[in-house]
Design a protein around this nucleic acid. Structure first.
Lengths: 114, 114
DNA sequence: TTATCATATAACTATACACTTATATAAGTG
DNA sequence: CACTTATATAAGTGTATAGTTATATGATAA
């Protein structure tokens, strides 16, 4: 067992949380980039409330944090969170999604709202 | 990204599968020990159908395999499965449950049925 | 053969979950 | 100020999920 180890309860809770393609992708992106809600709406082509609700689940366990900048709210991974070492290990096993952001930039929609 | 990497679809599907405390514990135990259904019934103090259904989900994606020995069916992790490298990395982050089996042995129930 | 043990499966139930629509809040903009 | 933009939240809906009880299957034992 590695230094990122945690109890079974916590581990299964976190795996379930990341066991959703949208949330897993969000966290993978947020690990490297700050994003606001409207960008995720673009990336995942999903309704704004749906995106907000996923972000809330991530925020409720402290995995992501939000920062308001004017009318936008930027999300990022909370690397100080007690579970981050665990999450970090899992994210290493998952493909990069930088191309998704790059695509937004090319479309000019990366900062459509931000 | 590490050699255990897989696509997002697969990753989230597997994380969801392990995002259940019972299944996560099962796989962690089966990684090191063959077990039969009745042992899991003891360990998790859960009904036999419930245990069987969890094992079926794991078997359906090929994570565990079964081998009949007389009237018992022994399960073990299928280390040849394409997803095993991914699973292995996750299991490294999770505490050992050897004490649970040890407890069964002490009670004499480890091989109550097997 | 009948009985028993180990396991699987089917049918049902209650809860959790992801998503939708509608509405609220909060910050800019004209 | 009213209007728009960005986001959150509430309420409702359909489906997935984990568990239950009941039954089926398959092997061994009497």
């Amino acid at each position: 067992m590695v230094k990122a180890a945690i109890e079974m309860d916590k581990a299964s809770m976190l795996l379930k949380l990341l066991g959703d393609k949208t949330r897993l992708s969000m966290v993978k992106i947020l690990e490297k980039h700050e994003c606001c809600v409207c960008e995720f709406v673009e990336i995942f082509r999903m309704s704004q409330p749906s995106i907000s609700q996923h972000l809330r689940k991530l925020r409720d366990v402290g995995l992501v944090k939000e920062e308001r900048k004017g009318q936008w709210i930027f999300y990022s991974v909370n690397k100080g969170n007690e579970y981050y070492p665990f999450i970090e290990q899992i994210l290493m096993l998952v493909p990069d999604l930088d191309d998704k952001l790059k695509k937004l930039e090319e479309q000019g929609t990366r900062i459509s709202c931000c």
